[in-house]
Every structure is written in C-alpha cells, then in structure tokens.
C-alpha cells in the first residue's frame, strides 16, 4: 500500500471511476477499494472504510453513494457528479447494446435456452449469497427474527416500504441491545 498521494484532479478521478464501472463484475466495492486505496493512494484504508460505512447506511446503491462521497470529498458538487456519471457511463452503454440484442434475438430458441440457464444460475447465486451473508453475520436471536421477518414479508408480497419501515426499528433496537452487551 502506498502512502496517500495529493488530491486527484477531476479528470483522473473521472477516469478512475470509468474504469471501476467497467471492471466491477458482480459488485463494484472491492474494485473501488483496490484502485482508490492501493493503486492510487488517494484515500487511506480508514477513509475508504468510513465512506463505505456511510454509503451502506444510506439508501440507494452503495457503489453510487460511495462514488458521490469520494467525488464530493475532493471536488464538491462537480466531483460528485463526475464520479457518479463515470461509474455508470460504461456499463450503461454496454447494457444498451445487450438490451437491444435481447429485443432482437430474445425469442430464438437457443438464445432462450442459454438465458434460462443463466437465469437459473443467477437465482442460485443470489440464494448462495444470502446463505453466505447470514452465516458470516452469525446473528443472535433478535436479529435472526428480523431477517426472517423480512424474508417472510417479501415472499408474502408485502410492499417494500412497509417491510423496511416496519422492521427497521426492531433491527436498530436489536443491534443496539446486542452491541451494548
């Protein structure tokens, strides 16, 4: 890890986020840390962890919140706009191509077969991620009940605002109680 360098200019910052967007397969945050902290040395490990921590509490995509936090830190509103747009520009262009191809060829039998296979794999990937995260957390009983509550309510098709607003107070209470002990 190199020591923190001077603050980056707007252009290098934008280019860095363009790269993060295009390389970030399946989750961007690991790539962002690698580039911003280890390669460029613009942020210390502590800076990045704090920015990410706040980004995770705020609603919305963590990666975007993080980009806005990093951009604003160095260049205010302009930095936030540049980092946020750069993060999405590359993948958006790519996805426009993919979406157009899907509309044109999505009904071909072999395309449907490939996509059905990928969709099944993606379903398993989401399930596996949930199991992995739950295992890593090792929640106590109160937090476990909150998690199971969210699962049950989402499967019962309760609208998301009700799920989040209904369970957040219990989650906060359970976490506060757990941390105090």
């Amino acid at each position: 890890m190199s020591p923190p360098a001077g603050p980056p200019g707007l252009l290098p910052l934008g280019l860095a986020y363009l790269r993060i967007g295009l390389t970030g397969f399946g989750g961007v945050n690991a790539w962002a840390r690698q580039l911003l902290v280890e390669e460029k040395g613009w942020l210390t490990e502590q800076d990045y962890a704090e920015t990410l921590g706040v980004a995770q509490v705020l609603p919305g995509p963590n990666a975007l919140n993080c980009a806005i936090g990093v951009g604003a830190r160095f260049h205010g509103a302009a930095g936030a706009a540049v980092c946020g747009l750069a993060l999405f520009a590359g993948p958006m262009a790519l996805l426009m191509g993919i979406a157009a191809l899907y509309d044109a060829y999505g009904d071909l039998p072999w395309v449907r077969a490939v996509l059905t296979g990928i969709a099944a794999a993606a379903a398993g990937m989401v399930l596996g991620t949930a199991v992995k995260m739950a295992q890593k957390l090792r929640p106590g009983l109160p937090l476990l009940l909150v998690g199971l509550g969210a699962l049950g309510m989402a499967l019962a098709r309760v609208p998301l605002p009700a799920v989040v607003l209904g369970l957040a107070p219990f989650g906060l209470l359970a976490a506060w109680w757990g941390l105090r002990r």
């Binding site: 398993g124 989401v126 199991v131 957390l137 998690g147 699962l151 989402a154 499967l155 209470l173």
Partner: peptide, 25 residues
C-alpha cells in the same frame, strides 16, 4: 447500530429475491 440493524433486513430481502428468482427460473 444502524449498520448492524439494517443488515439482517437486507439479507432477508436478498434471500427472498433468491426464492422468487428460483421460482421464476
């Protein structure tokens, strides 16, 4: 507490995503 308390909600929702995706796929 905010980070810890919201994570189980998120994990529960992700698990529900997996179940819904599996049902569709």
């Amino acid at each position: 507490p905010a980070q810890f308390g919201l994570v189980p909600v998120a994990v529960g929702l992700i698990a529900a995503s997996g179940v819904i995706m599996a049902g569709a796929a």
